[in-house]
């Protein structure tokens, strides 16, 4: 159980590190902000408690200080007069400005570039593992394109409990395809390009160790990718409420070495007749 604990699970994909970096950085900043504000808050509460004979001190907004003159050293700056007169108000905006600067930096240098890398630059499908994941109540079908890199066509009318994704076995592209129920096997350090689909309602494909999460939206084919960097057994969960057995909708990812993976794929293809490959996910419980 070493990979799960009180904090985030072990990071096992190529971009997990950059997501974790953001999460830890933001939490460090949040903690710092909270402690600084908290200390200031407690200081104010103690210092300005009501004491007999000590009245509250107004900040005196009324005397708009026309008589306040700007020190000579500052007078050559533009708007010096205006800024100097409102320095009390402006000072209170300093924390806001600091936080805003931090947020702008975060967005420009972190959020947008990393987001674009993860979500918008799906790698070329050549020489990658090519997979289609089809979610349904309450399981996942993982459809491998096989060595030809082409996913066999699916037809709604072929959907049957022995063929949950309706794969057209007559088509040439389907010959080297493998369909798995709730079990996914991936070679380590190799990019897998995934099309995510749903047969019925919205599901969400979440592998905590990969830091990957994407809703499966019925009617849409959503591209995503992941490069596993650690071998081992990880967990697929559904992160979007999908019905009464939502919490039982889970699967496993086995990340293996390339040799193990190839051997597994061959055995799967050779020993099991194509039509029976897919177990019906609904039978799993």
């Amino acid at each position: 159980m070493g990979k799960y604990g009180w904090s985030m699970p072990v990071a096992a994909s190529s971009y997990a590190g950059s997501i974790d970096f953001g999460i830890w950085l933001i939490h460090a900043a949040m903690f710092g902000i909270f402690v600084l504000w908290g200390a200031f808050f407690v200081y104010l509460l103690v210092k300005y408690r009501a004491r007999p004979g000590v009245p509250a001190q107004r900040e005196d907004h009324e005397e708009t200080p026309a008589h306040i003159s700007v020190p000579d050293s500052l007078s050559k700056f533009p708007f010096a007069q205006l800024l100097y007169r409102n320095k009390g108000e402006l000072k209170s905006l300093i924390p806001d400005m600091v936080i805003m600067t931090f947020e702008i930096a975060l967005i420009v240098f972190y959020a947008i570039p990393v987001w674009n890398k993860i979500k918008m630059n799906v790698p070329d499908t050549k020489d990658q593992v090519r997979v289609e994941i089809i979610a349904e109540q309450f399981g996942w079908s993982i459809h491998y394109a096989g060595p030809d890199g082409k996913l066999g066509p699916r037809k709604t009318e072929l959907v049957h409990f022995s063929n949950p994704i309706g794969l057209d076995h007559a088509a040439a592209e389907s010959a080297d395809d493998v369909v798995m129920g709730n079990e996914m096997r991936l070679p380590v350090d190799k990019t897998v390009v995934i099309d995510l689909l749903s047969k019925d309602v919205i599901h969400s494909f979440f592998v905590p160790e990969f830091r990957i999460k994407q809703d499966a939206m019925p009617g849409l084919k959503i591209p995503m990718w992941v490069t596993p960097t650690k071998t081992g057994k990880f967990e697929i969960t559904c992160a979007q409420l999908c019905g009464f057995a939502h919490s039982l909708m889970r699967g496993d990812v086995y990340v293996q070495t390339q040799e193990e993976y190839d051997a597994w794929y061959k055995s799967r293809l050779a020993t099991v007749p194509a039509a029976d490959v897919a177990s019906n996910p609904a039978e799993d419980f």
Binding site: I19, G22, I107, A111, I112, W115, I118, K119, R211, K213
Partner: peptide, 8 residues
């Protein structure tokens, strides 16, 4: 933030 929201 988009990126950290992927996980959370």
């Amino acid at each position: 933030l988009t990126v950290t929201d992927i996980y959370l």
